[in-house]
Every structure is written in structure tokens, then in C-alpha cells.
Amino acid sequence: MNLEKNIKDVIAQQLENGIVENLISEQLKQGVSKALEDLFSSYGGEARKVIENKLKSVIVPYLETYDYSEYITKLDHVLVETIKEASFDNRKLLENFKNLMIEEKEKTMKLSDLFEKWKEYVAKKVETDGLEVEFDDGPEYEAVEVRVEVERNEDRSWSIFEHATIFFECEHDEKMNFEVPISLYKRDEQWDLQYRSNKELKSLRHLNDFEILLMRLSQNSVKIDLDIEYEDDEVTPNEEPEPTFG
């Protein structure tokens, strides 16, 4: 009887101290916290989606219309200084990033001008193994044959778009070759360039100069004027033959 009485006294005392209310309050807090956690969870949380959509509706248009030219100028200075101190691999990555950030002032480029840019790239990078050495104007490698050609797709007659591909080809060195998809809204006169490449930061060190140019034209929405649809030419490599001594 004394034991039972002691138990009752302890229970009565704890009830008077508010332990039940405290326990209920604690569990309620945990329940609300868990419910909110689930509500804002990154895995389909409804509240998170609502907040995210509201933020996008306000922030994204602001970011799209903001003038970043002042910051790009500052960034250019920072990158130049960083490039000077970087290792070779990182220097190439930073140089490519710097060139990719250049703003294209002209909103249209003629295909003939783009062809000239590609020929400059070929002259710098074309493989010279297997080329004859000529001595007409001093020792130099023989020229390689290059061409640009526009191949139009067979689109539906009812479509409001036309599609085509620009092919830059060098028979001697296929690594120089590029194919660039373009499209035309039939009410426009110039074509949209749609060059896509791997845009991960780590891939920038592996991109060549012409790829960077194409990516920059594409991201700046530069239109292509098809002033030519086929042209061939010859390009003399910039690399000079090693001197030989008889």
C-alpha cells in the first residue's frame, strides 16, 4: 500500500509540475518542425516550389536586363592578371573563358567572314605531317585545300522554319572540320547559329579558338548572313618546316 501511495504521489506531483504539458508541447514542436521540413524538402516540397517560382519571376527578368558591361571590364583585368600567374593548363582555361566573355558588338556576320576566321584557325593548327615543302618564296609547307558549304534540310513546306548545316572541311586534316547547325524563321533574312558544345568549366581548357568563337557568336545571338553557300580555297600553314642541312 505504501508503494502504491508513493507512486500516486509521484504521478500527482509530476502532473502538478506540468510534465505532461511539456511533453505534449515538445512533441508538437517536433511534429510541426518535421512537417515544415517535408514541406520545404528539395524533393517536391510544395512550399519550396511556390517560393522558387516567385523568386524566379522577380530575379530572372532583372538579371536578364541588367547591364554587366562594367563588371565584364573589371573581370577582364582580373583574368589578365590571373592568366599571367597560372599554370599552362589553367592558363588555357582562363584564356578561353576570357575570350568567351567578349561581347560581340556586331549582331550579324557574313558567312564569308566566318569562313575567313576558320581559315585563320586552319593555318595555325593544321597537321603538317605528309605535306610537301615548297621553296618558291622560301621554305614553306604546301597549301591545303579547304571549303565551306551550306547544306539545306528538306523541311516541311508548312513549317515556319528552315534548317541547314554549315560544313567547314579540310581534306588533309579532318580534325579541322566543323559542322554548325543554323535555322531561319521564314520572316527573317539572317540565320540563327546554333552551335552547342560542352560548357562545363573544366572542358574550357580543351576547346580550340574556333570553337570559342562559335560559342561566343551563339550565346550573343549573332545572326549569320549567307552571302555565300559554297566556296573553296587553299590555306598555307603558318608552321615553318624544320631547316635541313645537306
Rank of each mutant, 00 (worst) to 15 (best):
N208L: 12
Y62C: 03
D173A: 01
K223Y: 15
L226G: 06
S197I: 12
E104L: 10
L204N: 08
P241T: 00
F40S: 08
D227A: 02
S69K: 02
L213F: 04
Q27C: 14
E104Q: 15
N53G: 05
L111W: 02
T65W: 10
R152G: 04
E169H: 09
E120W: 01
K74I: 03
A12S: 11
D136V: 13
Y141C: 02
I83C: 12
N53T: 09
N99I: 02
P237Y: 00
I19A: 14
V20G: 02
L23V: 11
L63P: 00
L226Y: 04
R187F: 12
E103Q: 15
L131A: 05
E234V: 05
E179A: 15
L93D: 04
D136K: 08
Y230C: 07
R187G: 11
R152N: 10
G18F: 04
G246S: 13
E37K: 07
E116I: 08
T165D: 13
D137Y: 11
N153Y: 03
I72P: 04
P139N: 03
A164C: 09
N96Q: 10
F135R: 01
A12C: 06
V10C: 10
S41D: 15
V78I: 10
N238G: 07
I166Q: 05
M1S: 11
E142G: 02
Y195W: 03
P61G: 14
D136C: 03
E85Y: 10
M215L: 15
E200S: 12
E151Q: 11
K54F: 00
T244S: 03
V180P: 04
E4S: 00
E46T: 08
E239I: 14
L94R: 01
E154P: 03
G138T: 02
K117I: 06
K117H: 10
E85V: 05
A35W: 13
G130H: 00
R187E: 13
E21D: 11
V122H: 06
D155E: 08
M215H: 06
S157N: 10
S42H: 07
L193P: 01
N17L: 14
K119I: 00
F167Y: 11
E171T: 09
I166Y: 10
V80K: 11
E120F: 02
F88C: 07
L131R: 01
E116T: 09
M215Y: 04
D227K: 01
E174R: 13
E16W: 06
Y195T: 02
F161M: 09
Q14G: 12
E145I: 15
H77T: 12
E162D: 13
T82C: 11
Y62N: 07
D67E: 12
E169V: 11
K117G: 04
V150M: 00
M1V: 12
K175I: 07
C170L: 02
H206Y: 15
I102N: 08
T236V: 13
E179I: 13
E103R: 14
G246R: 09
L217G: 05
E52K: 06
I228E: 08
E179D: 15
F167S: 05
K105H: 07
Y68Q: 06
